[in-house]
Amino acid sequence: MKRIIVIFGVILSLLIFSTPLYASANRFIVKSSFYQKDKIRIVFAAPVDRKLAEDRSNYYVYERTDPDIPLPIKDISLSKDGRVLTITFKEELNQHSPHIVVIKKIVSAGRNLGIASIMVRKSYAGFLMSILIGAMLVHNFVFTKYLGLCVFFGTTRRKATAIGMGITFTIVMVCSAMISWFLYNYVLKPLNLQFFQVVMFIGIVSLIVQAVDIILRKINPYLFKAFGIYLMLVLANCVILAVPLLIVVNGYNGIEAFVFSLGAGLGYFLALFLMSSVREKLELANVPPSYQGLSIAFITAGLFGLAFMGFSGMSIF
């Protein structure tokens, strides 16, 4: 168990630290960042042509999620040494979502360097962290989205079952979300078959469940005895279908999809664990007869939901 956690941590940290490799769009652009509330700042490697750089029609800026809505630009200014460009917008920017700045033409020292499309966002590790925390706590699938409730009430009577279900669920969730993301982006999208997404995602979930069932039965029969019964419950869970659909809606890339699905799985695990801890205590409590059993569980879940509302609107990074 310890070894698995260590390997997992190493892979995750490698992913996070290797992201600058993904982020570099154009070599001529050294740095791009948000500045104050309504500005974007771009630093070039060498001085650029002033007349072209300050031309407003040379730029097209949009939020990554809505590529067809250009953001209105108020002012563009280039610093004295010609390297730092500041774009001021008419409205405040939503700095939590990545923005794309398209510069139609960059000219430096009489040389045309072509078009550049720059992704501007807050520090990428922080962005990933906010996706993780967001999926886990702020938009917890059970307590704020009310998904996966049947399994949630079914498996939280004892702590041991809740933990087993949580771990199985997280593993299956990450695998199926990654495969769904891959097939959606590289098979369905190029062929204009996005309307098949639900059919595809359900198929992938059942594939993963079946594969884990077959492989676990052979490799580790003890683990299979402990977790095997939950696999079929995972299949009947709606969180597992909601996650790939949300990944598609939010337009996440591979790493973000991985982090999001991991956060969703851990969030579900957390919800199951908290609920089962309370329900084990409730067995010993003096509950009025009309509230016994599932009704007190519903009330408990409602109280948890209220508590989780405290996270709503929170942004850490």
Binding site: L183, V187, L188, L191, L193, F196, M200, G203
Partner: peptide, 11 residues
């Protein structure tokens, strides 16, 4: 038809 073929192949 393309969709049917693709889903069939994937399946």
């Amino acid at each position: 038809m393309g969709g049917l073929a693709v889903l069939g192949v994937i399946g």
